[in-house]
Design a protein around this nucleic acid. Structure first.
Lengths: 63, 63
DNA sequence: AATTTTTGTAAAGTTTATTTGACTTTTTGT
DNA sequence: ACAAAAAGTCAAATAAACTTTACAAAAATT
């Protein structure tokens, strides 16, 4: 599962720590997801989508 | 997290067992998700979306 | 060049998703 | 009414997501 979190972070000038705080998870969770170590839970994917005003599919790509 | 799985199943005449088979999970997982016992993983949500030709947001609603 | 910030990583622990097996209750078909 | 099929549920086990703490590497700032 790929994702555009790193790019979205860059666009918004967010550090991993800041994004983690906004999504209410640990910084390591953001890092792990960006690095593809595991997929976010569905609730977390929803939170990210809401934060960036995008659909889940626009942030996370199955494959 | 609410979802429309039960309705979508009805529309497609799928039993929980059939849907489970199509999504490659156990029947109990489908039942538990329908009954709100837990949320599906993001990969499973994607699979369901693909199966029904809908977006994740059209099947699963946050809150 | 030195310091601070950010990112990467790892181990150990907790929580949540999912499995299998078994059993009960409800719904559907005859 | 009866049988069969589908749905609901529970317990015990495994896997995956996520936490905290801690430290090292890389990037940015001064």
């Amino acid at each position: 599962m790929k994702n555009r979190l790193k790019v979205l972070r860059a666009e918004h000038n967010y550090t991993q720590a800041k994004l983690a705080e906004l999504l209410d998870v640990s910084r390591q969770t953001i890092n792990a997801i960006e690095k593809g170590k595991f997929d976010p839970s569905l609730p977390l994917a929803f939170k990210a989508a809401r934060l960036f005003n995008l659909s889940i599919e626009e942030i996370f790509q199955d494959e």
